[in-house]
Simulated scan of single mutants.
Amino acid sequence: MYFTAPRPEETSPVPAPFQPDPAFRADVLQGLSQPQKSVPARWFYDMRGSQLFEAITQVPEYYPTRTEAALLQAHSAAVAERVGAEATVVEFGSGSSIKTRTLLRAMPRATYVPIDICGEFLDEACAALQGLFPALRIVPVEANFMNPVKLPLPQSLPHGEEARPMLGFFPGSTIGNLTPVAAVDLLRSMRETLGEGAHLLIGMDRAKDPARLVAAYDDAGGVTALFNLNLLQRINRELGGSIPVGEFRHLARWNPEAGRIEMHLQARRAIRFEVDGHPFRMEGGETIHTENCHKYLPGEMRVLLAAGGWRETEHWTDPQGDFSLILARADIEQEA
């Protein structure tokens, strides 16, 4: 027997002026139609999802944020010395730009170009950052950074002025959300966005005890669960869905063959629901796969970067060896 939940008030049709992202609709409908249902992780980040992710970074179990922050504090001056304090810093998936503040303090003459898929959250983050750095030039870009992005920077320079060096910034081990093949594609896309001779400062999480990894993605306070479940609420709100959110639970598990943490939304019992007028059904125990978080050994990180067209020039880690902060460069000899 399938349980069909009544449509709650928060899933009422949105006002007529709102137009859902057609890519969001396509990804959801396609993903829910597969034998292993899935929704790409990039759709976590509506306004509420972005806020919940920032809350995740503060929970005790989630070590990557505080470890990477300490590495940035220790090594941002070295990055500025290697790249140039006047560089254009392009952050892919900028979020709240909290970590970026440490980097920008070491690069006082930089231009900052944050790229994020959530325009509302991007505007709030830029306003907060401008308050801290009144002289900083900020050029926000609302875009999906998974594809090459045309940066809105000056096409010509005053006579005698050299082009500013380019520094891509991709913290948070976000690269681990992608399969290795997709990660290589993204690294090549970043290289195309930033150009020849650019640098990339990237954070990557290291392989470690699976119990620590599972705890980091299933915190005792349930913040990550709320983050995961918010995806269903977004589907209901923006795509006219009738998903019974209360009939799902958050699930985090280690996949040793793939070397990754997987996040799923598991149906507590058999259910039926609709999305954008399309009917779906799930058996009890069936899941919607929402995110992967790959973990790498240092040698694997170098291979991944090289495959994407980047040469590692610096590699920093914490005393426990939990996390890596890597500076890489796009050199001519790296082209395939």
Score class of each variant (00 low, 15 high):
residue 13 P to S: 07
residue 13 P to W: 08
residue 16 A to P: 05
residue 17 P to G: 00
residue 18 F to S: 09
residue 18 F to V: 15
residue 18 F to W: 12
residue 18 F to H: 15
residue 18 F to E: 14
residue 18 F to T: 15
residue 19 Q to T: 13
residue 19 Q to E: 13
residue 19 Q to H: 09
residue 20 P to A: 08
residue 22 P to H: 08
residue 23 A to C: 09
residue 23 A to P: 04
residue 24 F to K: 11
residue 24 F to Q: 10
residue 25 R to K: 13
residue 25 R to F: 02
residue 26 A to L: 03
residue 26 A to K: 02
residue 26 A to C: 04
residue 30 Q to S: 15
residue 30 Q to H: 13
residue 30 Q to F: 12
residue 30 Q to V: 14
residue 31 G to L: 00
residue 31 G to T: 00
residue 32 L to I: 05
residue 33 S to E: 05
residue 33 S to Q: 03
residue 33 S to F: 05
residue 34 Q to F: 07
residue 36 Q to I: 14
residue 37 K to E: 10
residue 39 V to C: 03
residue 39 V to D: 10
residue 39 V to H: 00
residue 39 V to G: 06
residue 39 V to I: 13
residue 40 P to G: 01
residue 40 P to F: 06
residue 42 R to N: 12
residue 43 W to Y: 09
residue 44 F to M: 10
residue 45 Y to N: 09
residue 46 D to Y: 09
residue 46 D to H: 04
residue 47 M to E: 15
residue 48 R to H: 00
residue 48 R to D: 07
residue 48 R to C: 00
residue 49 G to L: 03
residue 50 S to I: 02
residue 50 S to Y: 02
residue 51 Q to M: 13
residue 52 L to C: 09
residue 54 E to P: 10
residue 54 E to C: 09
residue 55 A to F: 01
residue 56 I to T: 03
residue 59 V to P: 12
residue 59 V to R: 11
residue 60 P to Y: 11
residue 60 P to L: 11
residue 60 P to V: 03
residue 64 P to E: 03
residue 64 P to S: 11
residue 67 T to M: 03
residue 69 A to P: 12
residue 69 A to R: 15
residue 70 A to G: 06
residue 71 L to F: 01
residue 71 L to Y: 00
residue 72 L to V: 12
residue 76 S to F: 02
residue 76 S to P: 01
residue 80 A to N: 02
residue 82 R to A: 15
residue 82 R to P: 06
residue 83 V to T: 01
residue 83 V to A: 01
residue 83 V to P: 03
residue 85 A to I: 14
residue 85 A to L: 05
residue 85 A to E: 15
residue 88 T to V: 14
residue 88 T to D: 07
residue 88 T to R: 11
residue 89 V to P: 05
residue 89 V to E: 00
residue 90 V to C: 07
residue 90 V to Q: 10
residue 90 V to F: 11
residue 91 E to H: 05
residue 91 E to T: 09
residue 91 E to S: 02
residue 92 F to N: 12
residue 92 F to Y: 13
residue 93 G to H: 07
residue 93 G to F: 13
residue 94 S to A: 14
residue 95 G to D: 13
residue 96 S to I: 11
residue 97 S to N: 04
residue 97 S to P: 10
residue 99 K to Y: 03
residue 100 T to E: 02
residue 100 T to A: 11
residue 101 R to V: 02
residue 102 T to S: 13
residue 103 L to C: 07
residue 103 L to Y: 00
residue 105 R to V: 06
residue 105 R to Q: 15
residue 106 A to I: 08
residue 108 P to Q: 00
residue 109 R to F: 15
residue 110 A to G: 08
residue 110 A to Q: 03
residue 110 A to E: 04
residue 112 Y to H: 06
residue 112 Y to S: 07
residue 114 P to F: 12
residue 115 I to H: 04
residue 115 I to K: 05
residue 115 I to Y: 08
residue 116 D to N: 00
residue 116 D to T: 01
residue 117 I to E: 07
residue 117 I to T: 04
residue 118 C to F: 00
residue 119 G to A: 14
residue 119 G to F: 04
residue 124 E to C: 03
residue 125 A to S: 15
residue 125 A to W: 08
residue 125 A to I: 10
residue 125 A to R: 06
residue 126 C to M: 05
residue 126 C to Q: 05
residue 126 C to N: 02
residue 127 A to H: 04
residue 127 A to K: 04
residue 128 A to C: 02
residue 129 L to S: 01
residue 129 L to T: 04
residue 130 Q to A: 05
residue 130 Q to Y: 01
residue 134 P to S: 11
residue 135 A to Y: 13
residue 135 A to M: 06
residue 135 A to D: 14
residue 135 A to S: 14
residue 135 A to P: 01
residue 136 L to M: 02
residue 136 L to N: 00
residue 139 V to N: 04
